[in-house]
Design a protein around this nucleic acid. Structure first.
Length: 389
DNA sequence: GAGTATAAACACG
DNA sequence: TCGTGTTTATACT
């Protein structure tokens, strides 16, 4: 902070701020002084409700030169648990900038659907905002000419146009701002793990405050294939990420669907994908059950171990191997007055779907059929955009 | 996986 | 250490 005289202290230190809509200088292509970050055209596609801006150059540079910010820590000291934790993956200041950018630029949805429990139907309003991009591996977006926005959906094998009847939804290509991140996360995984993942889906969740959450579930749907690799990046406010081993019916086998969890999740959005920890801790408690790993436990039911991790801005957790088939995860609600735990948080998950059923599921549960919302900087909340889907 | 009810855990004085 | 108000965890629908 610069020194000021006592006299100056009692006067306004800065002139009144100019409204943001009034640019201080006029930049035109002719004068060639337009900031680089404003020159890249947005990602556009017929499947998008709005054009999606490209990353400002300062964020892009941060992503290209400063990730991974730390080497990953392996967490595999529990049965069937196989995690990588980058703490953080993106330097915190860059992660916070990326958080604000994505909240401002992406279209979001508040998905509602009806769930049947026994013979009664209940209306579910998912307590978080979501959006999704990508298509399963049986189809591919192919660029038609030099224009990156000329993507057409083709059959991966035959390169024939994908039939209109193949999907009950309109798959959307991953926009440039998220695709850069996707490529980098794949690369980070490749160096940390010889199994090189390639993601074709990007799910984004926005948790506006401590009331937004996602219940315990696994991302173990068949359309992800066996032992899916799911990378989960956390941006913005810090939130707890809980993991617990699936309960197990007596008999102690290690079947991969693991346990008696009823149809855990319609793939819903990524668990928060969140990840893990500033300080992960084992919390005993929760339901009791018989572990599927008999050699390390008495036969009687024992408290299942629970892991609690605090995810800060820029942290990334990669869930691998047998994790999804044996563990549940959640982002619980958190009370409090506008603290770090109740700030807005974005979670991005990258994953690979292998069959069309995955595409239909993700768009159904992460876009739905309601209206599209966008972040409004004035009211500081998501606002419904008339008529846009 | 959501909403609600209730029990358990925690914070504070 | 107890009492009370809150927050968190679990059971059930």
């Amino acid at each position: 902070m610069a020194k000021r005289t006592l006299d100056a202290f009692f006067k306004p230190s800065t002139p009144p701020k100019r409204p943001k809509t009034e640019p201080t200088t006029i930049s035109t292509p002719e004068t060639n002084n337009t900031p680089i970050e404003d020159t890249k055209p947005p990602s556009q596609h017929q499947s998008y409700p709005i054009p999606i801006a490209q990353l400002p150059s300062h964020i892009e540079v941060g992503l290209e030169h400063a990730t991974p910010a730390t080497a990953p820590r392996e967490i595999n000291n529990q049965p069937h648990l196989d995690l990588l934790h980058f703490q953080p993956y993106i330097p915190r200041p860059t992660a916070n900038e990326l958080f604000k950018f994505l909240r401002r630029e992406l279209p979001f949805y508040r998905v509602q659907y009806t769930a049947r429990r026994g013979d009664i139907e209940t209306q579910i309003n998912t307590p978080r905002w979501t959006t999704v991009f990508g298509v399963d591996e049986t189809s591919t977006f192919i660029q038609q000419d030099n224009n990156p926005n000329s993507l057409v959906l083709l059959e991966s094998k035959t390169k024939a146009p994908t039939p209109k009847t193949k999907y009950q939804c309109t798959p959307r290509p991953i926009p440039a701002c998220l695709d850069l991140l996707r490529r980098q996360v794949e690369a980070a995984n490749a160096t940390a793990d010889t199994k090189n993942p390639s993601y074709n889906f990007c799910l984004v969740n926005y948790y506006a405050n401590g009331d937004d959450s996602i219940a315990f579930h696994s991302d173990d749907e068949r359309f992800l294939g066996p032992e899916p690799n799911i990378a989960s990046l956390s941006l913005g406010g810090e939130r707890d990420f809980l993991m617990k081993h699936k309960p197990f019916v007596s008999g102690g086998n290690t079947n991969r669907t693991g346990g008696c969890v009823p149809d855990a999740a319609h793939a819903m959005s990524g668990p928060g994908g969140t990840g893990v920890t500033r300080a992960s801790s084992i919390v005993s408690g929760g339901t009791s059950g018989t572990m599927s790993n008999p050699e390390s436990r008495p036969a009687a039911t024992v408290p299942l171990q629970q892991i609690k991790m605090s995810l800060g801005s820029g942290d990334m957790v990669v869930m691998r191997g047998a994790t999804q088939s044996n563990w549940l995860h959640s982002i619980p609600k958190r009370k409090g007055k506008a603290g770090e735990m109740t700030r807005g948080r974005i979670n991005i998950t990258f994953r690979r779907a292998v069959i069309p059923g995955g595409t239909n599921n993700y768009y159904h549960y992460n876009v739905g059929s309601g209206g599209m919302y966008r972040w409004d900087e004035v009211s500081r909340e998501m606002v419904l955009q008339d008529g846009k889907v």
